[in-house]
Amino acid sequence: CKVCGDVASGFHYGVHACEGCKGFFRRSIQQNIQYKKCLKNENCSIMRMNRNRCQQCRFKKCLSVGMSR
C-alpha cells in the first residue's frame, strides 16, 4: 500500500492501496470528514502498525501519494 506499507489489495482511487486505506479514503471523501488537527505538526509517519493514530496525517498522505476520486 502506497499509504501505509501494508499489502495492497488492488488499484484503488488511483494508487495501489490496502483495504484499510481504501475504506478510510472512501469514507473521508463521501462523508466530507474534517479531521482533528494533528498534534505533531502534521508530520506523522503513517505505517501499517500506527495508521489509525492520526487521521489528519493519514488523509494527507492519501492525497500526497495520488489518491483521488
Rank of each mutant, 00 (worst) to 15 (best):
residue 9 S to F: 04
residue 29 I to H: 00
residue 19 E to D: 14
residue 60 K to N: 12
residue 65 V to H: 01
residue 8 A to V: 02
residue 61 K to F: 05
residue 63 L to V: 06
residue 33 I to R: 06
residue 4 C to V: 00
residue 55 Q to I: 05
residue 41 N to Q: 09
residue 25 F to K: 10
residue 7 V to A: 10
residue 4 C to Y: 01
residue 6 D to T: 07
residue 26 R to L: 10
residue 48 R to G: 13
residue 31 Q to M: 09
residue 7 V to H: 10
residue 32 N to P: 06
residue 45 S to V: 12
residue 38 C to W: 06
residue 40 K to R: 12
residue 50 N to S: 08
residue 31 Q to C: 05
residue 15 V to W: 02
residue 2 K to R: 12
residue 48 R to E: 14
residue 18 C to Q: 01
residue 60 K to R: 12
residue 33 I to Y: 10
residue 51 R to F: 06
residue 31 Q to D: 09
residue 7 V to M: 12
residue 19 E to R: 12
residue 50 N to Q: 13
residue 30 Q to T: 14
residue 2 K to W: 04
residue 53 R to T: 13
residue 38 C to D: 01
residue 1 C to I: 06
residue 63 L to H: 04
residue 32 N to Y: 02
residue 45 S to K: 04
residue 53 R to P: 14
residue 7 V to Q: 14
residue 41 N to D: 10
residue 37 K to G: 07
residue 54 C to N: 03
residue 52 N to Y: 15
residue 48 R to A: 14
residue 61 K to H: 04
residue 46 I to G: 09
residue 37 K to T: 09
residue 62 C to A: 12
residue 51 R to V: 13
residue 64 S to W: 07
residue 14 G to I: 08
residue 25 F to S: 05
residue 62 C to E: 07
residue 57 C to W: 05
residue 24 F to I: 00
residue 38 C to V: 05
residue 32 N to F: 07
residue 39 L to K: 11
residue 55 Q to N: 09
residue 59 F to G: 08
residue 38 C to L: 00
residue 8 A to I: 10
residue 3 V to Y: 03
residue 49 M to E: 14
residue 2 K to S: 08
residue 15 V to M: 03
residue 38 C to E: 01
residue 10 G to V: 11
residue 40 K to P: 06
residue 39 L to E: 15
residue 5 G to E: 05
residue 65 V to G: 03
residue 39 L to R: 10
residue 26 R to C: 08
residue 47 M to H: 13
residue 46 I to D: 11
residue 45 S to E: 15
residue 3 V to E: 03
residue 6 D to A: 13
residue 56 Q to D: 15
residue 27 R to F: 05
residue 58 R to W: 15
residue 56 Q to K: 09
residue 6 D to Y: 07
residue 33 I to S: 06
residue 14 G to F: 05
residue 48 R to K: 12
residue 41 N to Y: 06
residue 48 R to N: 14
residue 46 I to E: 07
residue 13 Y to W: 10
residue 31 Q to Y: 09
residue 52 N to S: 08
residue 6 D to F: 03
residue 2 K to Q: 12
residue 8 A to R: 01
residue 39 L to G: 10
residue 60 K to F: 13
residue 12 H to T: 06
residue 64 S to I: 00
residue 33 I to E: 07
residue 53 R to C: 15
residue 64 S to K: 15
residue 5 G to P: 05
residue 42 E to K: 11
residue 39 L to D: 15
residue 16 H to G: 07
residue 52 N to E: 14
residue 59 F to H: 07
residue 58 R to L: 15
residue 59 F to Q: 06
residue 60 K to Y: 14
residue 33 I to Q: 05
residue 62 C to M: 08
residue 60 K to A: 12
residue 42 E to V: 02
residue 45 S to L: 10
residue 49 M to R: 09
residue 24 F to A: 00
residue 31 Q to W: 07
residue 6 D to N: 07
residue 52 N to P: 03
residue 68 S to T: 12
residue 30 Q to G: 05
residue 8 A to K: 07
residue 25 F to E: 04
residue 17 A to E: 02
residue 13 Y to D: 09
residue 63 L to I: 15
residue 58 R to A: 09
residue 33 I to C: 05
residue 51 R to P: 14
residue 21 C to Y: 11
residue 30 Q to M: 06
residue 62 C to L: 01
residue 28 S to V: 07
residue 59 F to D: 02
residue 30 Q to C: 05
residue 57 C to Y: 02
residue 5 G to F: 00
residue 64 S to Q: 14
residue 57 C to D: 03
residue 49 M to A: 12
residue 68 S to K: 12
